[in-house]
């Protein structure tokens, strides 16, 4: 039951970030929606699924994925914004 609830909330957060991707009218505001809400949604879905399986290896894999996502989501946003002219610091 708690698995299903966590997965539902996580999917709702992913939907929210997709709505934000549509509604904001600036590239950087869109990136704010996608980096925060999406990684939180996947975080909740991963916790829900690993509670369902309740297995040592599954917890380890879930922890690995969570750490990896939280390290790389800001880095991805950073590298996308560096490819845009507006987002660079002037030398």
């Amino acid at each position: 039951m708690i698995t299903a609830l966590l997965i539902l909330i996580g999917s709702v957060f992913i939907l929210l970030s997709a709505i934000g991707l549509i509604r904001y009218d600036d590239l950087y505001s869109r990136m704010q929606a996608t980096t925060k809400a999406t990684s939180f949604g996947v975080f909740l879905i991963l916790i829900g699924a690993s509670i369902f399986f309740n297995n040592y290896f599954v917890y380890l894999k879930a922890l690995f994925i969570i750490i990896f996502i939280y390290l790389t989501a800001p880095l991805g946003a950073h590298s996308i914004s560096k490819s845009d002219k507006e987002g660079r610091l002037e030398e």
Partner: peptide, 25 residues
Amino acid sequence: SNLVSMTPGTLVVDANLGKKLLKVH
């Protein structure tokens, strides 16, 4: 930069380590 990117309403866009500046949206 990770913490700033994850706090409400801010996102790190660029960093200059020589000048010690951080550009934040």
